[in-house]
């Protein structure tokens, strides 16, 4: 497949390495070459996080996927709050803003977009919740304590206090454990005895373009694969200094006949600080490069959608966009 396109990060400039054979950056895109080049490798997959390598694509395409994940994959979040009573010290607008930011587990695929912002809530497009909490003195507390949690009941309002109120036939379709907040220990506000909250919450489906609270990701980013090579032998004190110039684990120290020599262990997790250039004796010993068609995607989900599903959804959104545009063009 030839040499991948790279750039070299020099002290005062970034220089391009011209590959001898055509790369994804300069050759004509055809489905055949794309199929040959495109590779994906899953590196890490956890509940909320995925890291994978997407190789052989053009930066324009990588960036489109990233942008769609952040601002066009829909989720469900609290959009409207009816404040029936709020005697806590937190202002209505601050409180409602905080409620909007709470991630909900509800699966956005099961809901429709609201036709109009001010339309009446329907069971297909809205989830209703209730937050009704009153803070009181804890009379049963026999402890002679002055700690707030011993003296009062409900002085901390958490996301677990949010209760679901089914609309229409929602009761048969969903269950509360699949709809409510992702985390039940998000602190919403604090109260003292006598203060109370009585709120009606309405959650709708929308995307990150509308408001950042609808974005399914905490972060979704990519970086190009770093390559580091040592062109001179670095030993002793200089080797340790070189190790400190890079992210932990990137440079290793090898013992050889009583000498300590620096070696490159794993360039992947280098975050490309330019600290080597602070040392005149080290800067000529290292060449730092980036592979331009090798993208390391990291997607961190907020909790509503699994991170791999966010990426799948992003691909589908781009595809749907194109097919609906094609339909329109064909009907012109």
């Amino acid at each position: 497949m030839g040499v991948p396109p790279t750039v070299t990060l020099e002290e005062h400039k970034i220089s391009k390495n011209v590959s001898r054979c055509p790369t994804v950056l300069d050759e004509h895109w055809t489905f055949k070459t794309f199929k040959k080049r495109c590779r994906i490798a899953i590196v890490r997959y956890e509940d909320y996080e995925i890291e994978f390598d997407f190789i052989g694509i053009h930066p324009a395409v990588a960036n489109t996927f990233r942008r769609i994940m952040i601002s066009e994959v829909p989720t469900v979040a609290i959009e409207k709050v009816h404040v029936l009573n709020n005697t806590s010290i937190m202002q209505d607008e601050v409180l409602t803003h905080r409620l909007g930011l709470i991630p909900l587990k509800a699966d956005p695929k099961l809901f429709e977009f609201k036709a109009e912002v001010d339309a009446e809530p329907r069971e297909q497009d809205t989830l209703e919740f209730e937050l009704k909490v009153k803070c009181m003195y804890n009379k049963d507390s026999n402890k002679n304590s002055s700690l707030a949690e011993d003296m009062y009941i409900n002085n901390y309002v958490y996301s677990k206090h949010i209760k679901w109120k089914p609309i229409g036939s929602q009761k048969d379709k969903f269950s509360e454990e699949n709809l409510g907040p992702v985390h039940d220990d998000i602190l919403i506000t604090k109260m003292i005895p006598g203060q109370e909250l009585d709120l009606k919450l309405f959650a709708i489906k929308s995307n990150g373009k509308d408001h950042a609270k609808f974005s399914p990701v905490a972060t979704a980013f990519y970086r190009m694969l770093p390559e580091i090579s040592l062109v001179k032998e670095v030993e002793g004190e200089a080797a340790e200094r070189l190790q400190k110039c890079f992210s932990p684990g990137v440079i290793g120290l090898k013992k050889d006949n009583g000498r300590v020599i620096a070696v490159v262990n794993d360039a992947r997790y280098d975050f490309s600080s330019r600290n080597v250039y602070r040392y005149d004796d080290l800067k000529d010993a290292v060449v730092m490069r980036k592979v331009q068609d090798h993208f390391i995607f990291t997607i961190e989900s907020v909790g509503a959608i699994k991170p791999d599903d966010i990426f799948r959804e992003a691909i589908n959104i781009l595809k749907d966009k194109c097919t609906s545009l094609l339909q329109e063009l064909n009907s012109l």
Partner: peptide, 25 residues
């Protein structure tokens, strides 16, 4: 039209490869 069709093809193939790799992982 060709550009849009190519994008659709690219999406299909990316999704295919991603699903494969995901199930292997």
């Amino acid at each position: 039209k060709k550009g849009l069709e190519d994008l659709v093809k690219m999406c299909d193939h990316s999704l295919l490869v991603f699903n494969e790799e995901m199930s292997i992982y």
